[in-house]
């Protein structure tokens, strides 16, 4: 369980998050929605410990976040991961990164580690590209490698920042099906997304953010009033033909 209390975050004098109080139960499929600049990525970066907390507290499994992060890690898929296309790493090397934090300092990957990373790459549909250099992968393929890395971390929490951003439409559907399988196997999924249609199909809990936490409710309660409150403008939900 992730418990966020009184979270505030300011950047260069500008308020990004204001008084966020939120409890995410175990084994939820949580979606965070909101307009650009609403603080969605900031919120998850604070949960991940990538940003220093200014005010408020975060507890994970009843333990203060800083303490929890000493012994545990999140499975994380960033929206964009900047990398040098000439970096001499294969897809398998990047997937193995998810396991490196659980090993003692100076340890080497063994056959079991490699098999786990391969399994994750197969799961995300890029098993055949395991030995390809990352510079030769397309944006979508690279994103799937990063998802494999997040999966292999074996964290009970999987946090994703707009996973659909670099996927084509058919791939988004299969991607969320994979997330659903992971959710059913007991993982807590937290994803930022703009795709309300896909979220209403798969997510069990919705967080609407626009600096403030406007509401958090089951996805079937997504209605025009709530969307207006979150996005500050009228929106229509258009059914996409996947």
């Amino acid at each position: 369980m992730i418990e966020i209390k009184g979270l505030q975050y300011r950047l260069q004098g500008k308020s990004i998050l204001e008084n966020i109080n939120l409890t995410l139960a175990d084994n939820e499929f949580v979606a965070i929605i909101g307009p650009n600049g609403a603080g969605k990525s900031t919120l998850i970066k604070l949960v991940l410990g990538m940003l220093d907390m200014q005010e408020g507290s975060i507890e994970i499994d009843g333990i203060a976040q800083a303490q929890w992060l000493k012994d545990n890690s999140f499975g994380y898929l960033p929206q964009h991961e900047e990398f040098d296309r000439a970096f001499p790493a294969t897809a398998l090397d990047i997937a193995l990164m998810g396991l490196a934090g659980n090993m003692r300092l100076g340890a080497r990957f063994n056959a079991t580690h490699k098999a786990q990373a391969m399994q994750a790459l197969e799961q995300t549909g890029v098993g055949k590209l395991a030995k390809s250099l990352i510079g030769r992968l397309s944006g979508g393929e690279y994103q799937r490698v990063l998802l494999a890395r997040a999966l292999v971390a074996k964290s009970p929490y999987l946090i994703l920042d707009e996973p659909e951003a670099s996927l084509d439409r058919p791939a988004v559907e299969s991607f969320f099906k994979l997330l659903k399988t992971l959710h059913e196997s007991g993982r807590t999924i937290i994803t930022i997304s703009h795709d309300l249609n896909i979220l209403s199909k798969y997510c069990s809990f919705l967080v609407c953010l626009n600096r403030h936490l406007h509401c958090h409710n089951h996805t079937e309660l997504v209605d025009a009033k709530m969307i207006h409150k979150t996005f500050g403008e009228s929106m229509h939900i258009i059914e996409k033909g996947y």
């Binding site: 991940l48 410990g49 990538m50 992060l69 545990n72 890690s73 999140f74 994380y76 960033p78 991961e81 900047e82 990398f83 970096f87 790493a89 090397d93 990047i94 990164m97 998810g98 490196a100 934090g101 659980n102 090993m103 300092l105 100076g106 340890a107 080497r108 990957f109 890395r149 971390a153």
Partner: peptide, 20 residues
């Protein structure tokens, strides 16, 4: 420290997220 150096060089911020 080959592995640690490898991931530090690849992406230091992500290496920290994955507790390397």
């Amino acid at each position: 420290f080959y592995n640690e150096l490898f991931y530090l060089t690849y992406n230091a911020e992500m290496a920290r997220v994955f507790r390397i």
